[in-house]
Structure formats: structure tokens, C-alpha cells
Write a protein that binds this DNA or RNA. Structure first.
Length: 278
DNA sequence: GTACAGGCAGTAT
DNA sequence: ATACTGCCTGTA
């Protein structure tokens, strides 16, 4: 197994429902609680779930060599050893990033935490109470007003739309995981509340699309300052939908099938440089 | 009081 | 295609 560092990965802003108790980290993964200390554990029992969550099945040597073709990313691989992509539960990931639009990480954590406390099922682990992430079926039954009371604000409408899409079968995460990147992305974009950025986050973090390259304001800044030679687009923090498409195409073409891994390192670096600790 | 935070949809040109 | 606007909510 290659060296990897769960703690830096957990703290890199890709997951929201992990917390530290003592020297152990506990995370909500759909209907399970995952514990990481010296070893991994799952409640209820789920054999080798760490292989899934920390992507231990990835050939990191191959990935590293592929994205190291870019000198900037090559340096970041050395600067942040052990930083890895994590694989999330698809439904939880969808709802998490719908809630993540136009807000900050502490707020996202608050919204999701409240959702789990109110609508999740209690699971005890080491004497601590944890709550699972509510399913689409459960969220679909909750009124928009109740969701707003969890602090979601106008995102409540989008959560309802996503839940309804899943319950009706119009949106099928198993199909999305099997589908090609562009097909899966188009399906996601059809749902109210899901745009380019959220779609790419869900594709990368939970639907096996390692070529997905989410472009948020931080990545846009990096692309503007370090990669203008690659796209030649004049841009500010905010980019239009069309600019997003053009950038996305060029960046995926340049970084290759593991572009999402490169994105994760660039994103982490930008946040570090800005002194963000969440 | 105002500005801002890891977007998105709706409308007008 | 692009420009512009409003939107929940908590924090500085």
C-alpha cells in the first residue's frame, strides 16, 4: 500500500461530516459510521470499507506519474504527501454539495449536521451518538419549510428537487456511476439546483469520474494566475457557464483521466496559501 | 449598518 | 453568448 494520510484528506474540504473524538476520527458515510484511528472500523460492520472510502484500490503510482507531467502539480504532490481523494456515498455527496452552494464550510457542516440530527438514524460508536445521513426517500417526505429550519435557506428547494428526482427514478446514481462522464454530467445538470460546479464535485467525489475537474472560485483563481497559457481566457473570480465549459474541456484534455486528482492538490494548495483552516 | 462566503436560476439584451 | 440580479444565513 502506498503512503497516504487520512487526516489531511479528511481536512481538505471534500468531506463535511467527520469529527475527532480523542485520537480517533469518526465520519458519516451514508448509513454507516466510519472510524479511523490506528486502524479502521465501521458501524454497523462493513468489511474493508476503508478500501472504498480512501480509494486504496487506486493505482496511486500511475496517477502520480500521470498528473506529475504538470510541473506545478508535481511540486504539490511533494508538498502535501498523503493527500488523497476520498470516495463518498453518492446520495450524501449529492445533498452535501447542493447545500454547499454559495456558502462556507462551517455553514455547510452546520446544515448537514442538523439534517442528520433531525432526520438520520442514531448509531452508537464507542459510546458516542452519531446520526446517519437521511436517504432521498426520507428527505423527499420533509417539507421545504422544515428543511429551511435546518438552516438551508433557498437551498431547501434544490434538496427537494434532487430528492424527488431520485425517488421517482429519473436520477439513478448507479447508472451515473456506470455512465460516461459527459452523459452522467448532463443527467445531473437537468436537475434544479445542480450546476456545473456541483455536478463535477458529485461526479468526482462519489461517481467514479476521476476526470471531473470542479471549478470553484479557488480553482478559477489558480487557473487565472498559473494556467492562463493553457486556456487564454480573461476571467475574474466569477466565470460564466460557457467559460466553465471551455475551461473544463481544456483542463481535462491537459491533465488526463486523473484530472480530478490534480484538482484536489491545486485546491488544497490555494486554500493553504490563503490561510484557510475552516 | 455592510460585505462576504467553495453557485445557481431567471430575465433581459 | 453574456451581463446582471436576487437569494438564506451566520460571521466579521
Amino acid at each position: 500500500m502506498q503512503h497516504f494520510n487520512p487526516e489531511i484528506s479528511i481536512n481538505s474540504g471534500q468531506v463535511f461530516l467527520w469529527e475527532k473524538h480523542g485520537d480517533a476520527w469518526y465520519g458519516i458515510h451514508g448509513q454507516h459510521v466510519v472510524k479511523f484511528s490506528k486502524t479502521f472500523q465501521c458501524f454497523p460492520e462493513f468489511k474493508n470499507i476503508e478500501n472504498t472510502i480512501f480509494r486504496l484500490d487506486d493505482d496511486f503510482a500511475a496517477i502520480s506519474s500521470e498528473i506529475s507531467k504538470d510541473p506545478f502539480v508535481s511540486g504539490l504532490l511533494k508538498s502535501y504527501p498523503g493527500l488523497r481523494l476520498m470516495r463518498q456515498d453518492p446520495e450524501q455527496c449529492l445533498f452535501s454539495f447542493v447545500c454547499a452552494s454559495n456558502t462556507n464550510i462551517p455553514m455547510i457542516r452546520r446544515m448537514l449536521y442538523t439534517l442528520t440530527r433531525k432526520f438520520g438514524k442514531k448509531i452508537q460508536a464507542d459510546g458516542i451518538d452519531f446520526f446517519t445521513f437521511p436517504t432521498a426517500f426520507e428527505l423527499n417526505k420533509i417539507s421545504e419549510a422544515e428543511l429551511r429550519q435546518c438552516g438551508l435557506g433557498y437551498r431547501a428547494k434544490a434538496v427537494k428537487a434532487v430528492a424527488a428526482s431520485i425517488v421517482s427514478g429519473r436520477l439513478d446514481t448507479d447508472y451515473l456511476a456506470r455512465a460516461k462522464y459527459k452523459d452522467a454530467k448532463n443527467e445531473l445538470l437537468n436537475v434544479y439546483g445542480i450546476g456545473n460546479k456541483i455536478a463535477d464535485c458529485v461526479l468526482l467525489f462519489s461517481l467514479e469520474k476521476t476526470e471531473a475537474f470542479p471549478i470553484d472560485v479557488w480553482i478559477a483563481r489558480a487557473l487565472a494566475s498559473n494556467y492562463s497559457w493553457l486556456h487564454g481566457i480573461k476571467m475574474s473570480d466569477k466565470i460564466t457557464a460557457h467559460q466553465y465549459d471551455v475551461l473544463s474541456e481544456k483542463v481535462r484534455d491537459y491533465f488526463g483521466k486523473y484530472a480530478g486528482y490534480a484538482q484536489q492538490y491545486i485546491y488544497y494548495h490555494m486554500r493553504q496559501e490563503a490561510g484557510k483552516k475552516w
